[in-house]
């Protein structure tokens, strides 16, 4: 893992921005520890082999209000298998991957870790473990002051979500506080794979066209073709969660060996990454 930056007020690391520098980025998500610690290590490493440019790791919280049924079930599996903030940091330290890792979790876990000191101790420990940034779905820009300050202190990025309903002053407030990349929510609702790509994605991307952070689109992306269309619509990256968590869930249901599920995840990742790359190529180049 990358060494922790010093805690002396450095600017956020450019690790994440760099991951978007060479064409469209593929950003997969899995819940850490789903369905158990050891299998999950293999799954995350498989995503890296499949071409992930950044990996979002979910640290499970018992009340995940932004998640649809697929990720809720993964969170239950992981918690039942004993995942906790301390185990999560050990997990991150043990992972053998060469891509930046983003921790996606809910505010109460960051907040509880530090007790009286708020979110700072969690950020400090995450930096030490090698986490590059955070996505906190229940923390809008208004409430993010203390976490933003802690991230700045330890050189971590803080990624915010822009929803189809985010407009006007709210966009500006988010723009001031976001770093690393901006998470563009493709449609309203909770996380979950969908057959159709929302036509609201394009208008969301247009609204933040002049932002200088990379724009990654998530919520509902399932296939390489989706990824291609999203990139063609102007995204700098695609975030895929539920479609991959589904693979883990199927593995559990069918009693598949972890190595087999890992192989499927790698294959799926490869397809999604290729889709994203196709989206960045000239349309004519697709039909030789």
């Amino acid at each position: 893992m990358s060494p922790p930056p010093s805690g002396d007020g450095t600017e956020p690391a450019d690790e994440l921005a760099a991951a978007f520098a060479d064409g469209p980025a593929f950003v997969p998500y899995l819940v850490a520890g789903d369905p158990d610690y050891e299998s999950s290590l293999q799954y995350v490493e498989a995503l890296a082999r499949g071409g992930a440019d950044v990996i979002e790791l979910g640290l499970p919280f018992s009340e995940p209000i932004a998640e649809g049924p697929t990720i809720q079930s993964a969170i239950v599996r992981s918690l039942e298998a004993g995942m906790s903030p301390e185990r999560f940091f050990a997990f991150v330290e043990e992972l053998d991957v060469d891509v930046p890792l983003v921790c996606m979790t809910y505010y109460n876990l960051l907040y509880q870790y530090g007790a009286e000191e708020g979110s700072r101790p969690f950020v400090e420990r995450a930096a030490e473990a090698g986490i590059a940034g955070f996505v906190v779905p229940d923390l809008p820009a208004e409430e993010a002051g203390p976490l933003r300050a802690a991230c700045d202190e330890f050189g971590l990025d803080l990624i915010f979500i822009v929803a189809p309903t985010t407009r006007g002053e709210r966009l500006e407030r988010t723009r001031e506080r976001v770093s690393g990349y901006v998470y563009v929510q493709a449609r309203l609702g909770t996380t979950g794979a969908r057959e159709e790509v929302s036509d609201r994605t394009e208008s969301s991307l247009e609204r933040i066209d002049d932002w200088d952070v990379p724009k990654a689109v998530g919520f509902g992306i399932k296939t390489g073709d989706h990824a291609e269309r999203i990139v063609r619509a102007g995204a700098d990256g695609v975030i895929v969660g539920s479609a991959l968590v589904d693979v883990v869930a199927e593995g559990v249901e069918e009693g598949r060996p972890a190595a087999e599920t890992a192989a499927i995840l790698e294959e799926r990742a490869t397809e999604l990454k290729r889709g994203a790359l196709r989206g960045a190529s000239e349309p004519e180049a697709e039909q030789p």
């Binding site: 209000i65 932004a66 505010y107 779905p137 229940d138 923390l139 809008p140 208004e142 409430e143 915010f160 979500i161 822009v162 929803a163 189809p164 309903t165 985010t166 407009r167 709210r170 988010t174 929510q185 309203l188 609702g189």
Partner: peptide, 14 residues
């Protein structure tokens, strides 16, 4: 107190 909710809900709270 405060407003710890997903971004999509913030405009509705406003």
């Amino acid at each position: 107190g405060g407003q710890y909710v997903p971004e999509a809900l913030m405009p509705a709270l406003e």
